[in-house]
């Protein structure tokens, strides 16, 4: 393996502290981002489902009702 790369990854002997710190930074922000977009998408799906259900239900009700006089 490339010597310069190994030296870079070793972080002067502090690799066990530096890389986890950067990893935690990126991971926590990624979780924050993904959880927000997950909740947003779930809201859209749920509400769309509710709206279509409501529409179908309403049209069903109007079909079964007797015609207006």
């Amino acid at each position: 393996m490339n010597v310069a790369l190994v030296k870079f990854l070793a972080m002067g002997g502090y690799a066990g502290y530096v890389w986890p710190a950067y990893g935690v930074f990126l991971l926590v922000l990624l979780i924050d981002w993904l959880s927000a977009s997950f909740h947003y998408r779930r809201l859209l799906l749920e509400e769309r489902h509710r709206l279509t259900w409501k529409k179908a239900h309403q049209s069903h009700v109007s079909r079964t009702l007797p015609p207006p006089p």
């Binding site: 972080m11 002067g12 002997g13 502090y14 502290y17 530096v18 710190a21 950067y22 935690v24 930074f25």
Partner: peptide
Amino acid sequence: QGDAYRIIFVH
């Protein structure tokens, strides 16, 4: 602090 100080950039 050697390279350990690099934690400063995220901390």
